[in-house]
Design a protein around this nucleic acid. Sequence first.
DNA 1: CTAGATTACTTTGCTAGCAGACTATACACC
DNA 2: GGTGTATAGTCTGCTAGCAAAGTAATCTAG
Lengths: 150, 150
Amino acid sequence: MGHDEQPLWRRAATHTLHTSILLKAKLEDRLQGAEGLLLADHEALLNLEHFGESLRMSDIAHRLVLSRGGTTKVIDRLEEMGYVSRSSDPADRRATMVGLTAAGREAIGRAKLVIDAGLEEIWSTHLTDDQSIVLIEVMDRVLEANRDWH
Amino acid sequence: MGHDEQPLWRRAATHTLHTSILLKAKLEDRLQGAEGLLLADHEALLNLEHFGESLRMSDIAHRLVLSRGGTTKVIDRLEEMGYVSRSSDPADRRATMVGLTAAGREAIGRAKLVIDAGLEEIWSTHLTDDQSIVLIEVMDRVLEANRDWH
DNA sequence: CTAGATTACTTTGCTAGCAGACTATACACC
DNA sequence: GGTGTATAGTCTGCTAGCAAAGTAATCTAG
């Protein structure tokens, strides 16, 4: 075994890919079990919380790196759960504004506990601060360099 | 902005998650465009290449961290493309052995070029060797600690 | 040797998300 | 104004993958 001659960055890339696919599944499983939310749902709620609580569909799509159709479905789900509400933008009647409801704000609070616990269990005991800093740097840089894709 | 008080490992975790979701999509898009293969297909082929070229379905499922049903579909696809062939294990007739065909071996060669080019474009210019080593260490450790899940 | 339990795989029904078509509104230029 | 073009969102198939039920072969007890 191990007659591979892979450059370091390639091994880093494949390890990162494998690990994060598994962990995404694990985290999503937790969140869905506890709150009936997908990670995409949670991200949408977080974005609404952070950015004015009233975003247009296309803004949400862009922030979630999701197709327009996918975003429609995410917001459909959240609206059905009573966590967000749609309203028409009077200034541009093509646009749909999405806002958090009170129930949505409560859901964020509960979800945050689940996510934190999950991430902590998965990651915290395995990461030193130095390693965390490297990860943040690298991921930021790579994300920025590839964000425009698609 | 940035009145967040998140611990470092949490930011590292979320950055890693976001980045790798995007990059998986980008890489898969390349591979599918060039060879009509999904990453799961490619992983299956690689596993067949590395481990004796004849694995049982359940071995493949385990290695790909995929459900049994999902594995059936992956192998269906690859068989239809002529890259693998199924045969019954004479020693245990419940089992299905999957083997690479010559065309499958060629496909691996072509896919490797696509994957390498994609990974290189995405990662190589952004990773120093030191950073790569940190990533490999961390991802290995985290994967190992969470592998048993599911 | 045969009844029940286990294992290996496939099939079926479901959900998430994409791509592309469609509708409605807004803008630009004549 | 009117006409062409771009944009916002939704709708309609389609695919990947899961979970759970179904089938077939093997093992274990008695």
